[in-house]
Nucleic acid binder design. Structure first.
Lengths: 190, 190
DNA sequence: TCAAAAACTTGAACTACTTCAAGAAATTCA
DNA sequence: TGAATTTCTTGAAGTAGTTCAAGTTTTTGA
């Protein structure tokens, strides 16, 4: 079902029924099994993904061979590799399902011509991207100013359900500390 | 002069002469003296700034009273606090001139109505924001996977002129290590 | 339902960085 | 020009985190 996407869009702009039809015909919903990749390092990313259900993450494999989560996307978030998408260069990232998920995929070529046809949709993406960018600016602030323990508590206070929902080692790497250290923070052993 | 902005815009989209006039009438260029603030913590940010000449930075004052640079913007970059701008909440950041600079300021109310009038301009901002977001994703990757020394060399290799141009302690905090440690890296004493 | 896999915990040893304090060098501007 | 300010450097001591290795608990799926 595409409804969650249309609901999300209509929070920011309103679409003509004809535009809704046009957009609808371009969307492809797909189920992604837990741990399945929708993008791998080295591939060119030609798709934007909207999470209808479940949870996706962007991660890399670092020089020690360990996975490092850089970004999560839950229901109603967009996720893609914007650099690869816009510059048509190989991606540095993996995009993977953390849970069994459903995503709406929009192909770049299709989307770009759709955006020219529907200026209001262009507006939607501009606003959503700028808001996400704002959230990213705050994230950098937190990473720069808080200790590991403060970052954990802050995240836990703000997204308690989410912390329950995904493996702790992913949260640890998203907050930029080791899984072992997170375990100690939780046990009050720091 | 507004030319640098129009040149930048026309790299991504093309504007009708009438649109150029319309936009032109909304722009306000202003000189910002080195160290002068164009936004302070606690204020609501209602403006987007385009750097025509010079260099601006976004920084915070951390719990120890030290300045921490989170972002730079040189010629042809936009800078603002997107969270404060979109959610109309007090900013967590300062925006300050690193050098004597010239910026084009566009007021939010003016810009938002302009964007509705000129869909192509909406497109420009969508593309520019997404590209900047892509750069930010890479930045997070570098912060997460490289050591302080690697981050310094990587930055220095990619932006050698820029490293000459701004005080080293600002670069150090932008790369998330202390000015003293940067000094030691440069001296080969690590 | 139960064996295998994935996720979490613990302590001990280590290290990449920070902090502090003081001096030297470079830049600014009256 | 030269005094004041800003920026950079250096070494010594400290610490917030990592790494490793091994064991325990929880979850998964045939």
């Amino acid at each position: 079902m595409h409804k969650p996407l249309f609901d999300h869009i209509q929070k920011f702009i309103s679409l003509e029924p004809s535009d809704i039809d046009k957009l609808e015909s371009c969307l492809e919903i797909s189920k992604v099994k837990k741990k399945e990749h929708i993008l791998e390092e080295g591939q060119i990313c030609n798709t934007m993904y909207f999470v209808v259900k479940g949870c996706m993450r962007q991660f890399i494999i670092n020089s020690k061979g360990a996975e490092q989560t850089l970004q999560f996307a839950i229901e109603n978030w967009w996720i893609t590799d914007y650099l690869s998408y816009h510059n048509h260069v190989p991606s540095s990232f993996y995009l993977q399902a953390v849970e069994n998920s459903e995503v709406i995929a929009i192909d770049k070529t299709v989307l770009e011509s759709l955006l020219i046809e529907i200026p209001n949709l262009e507006r939607y993406f501009r606003i959503v991207t700028q808001k996400t960018f704002g959230a990213m600016q705050m994230r950098i602030k937190f990473l720069f100013t808080m200790s590991a323990e403060e970052r954990y508590h802050h995240f836990n206070d703000n997204f308690p359900e989410f912390v329950q929902r995904v493996p702790q080692y992913m949260i640890a790497s998203y907050l930029d500390f080791s899984a072992e250290f997170m375990s100690k923070i939780r046990a009050g052993k720091v």
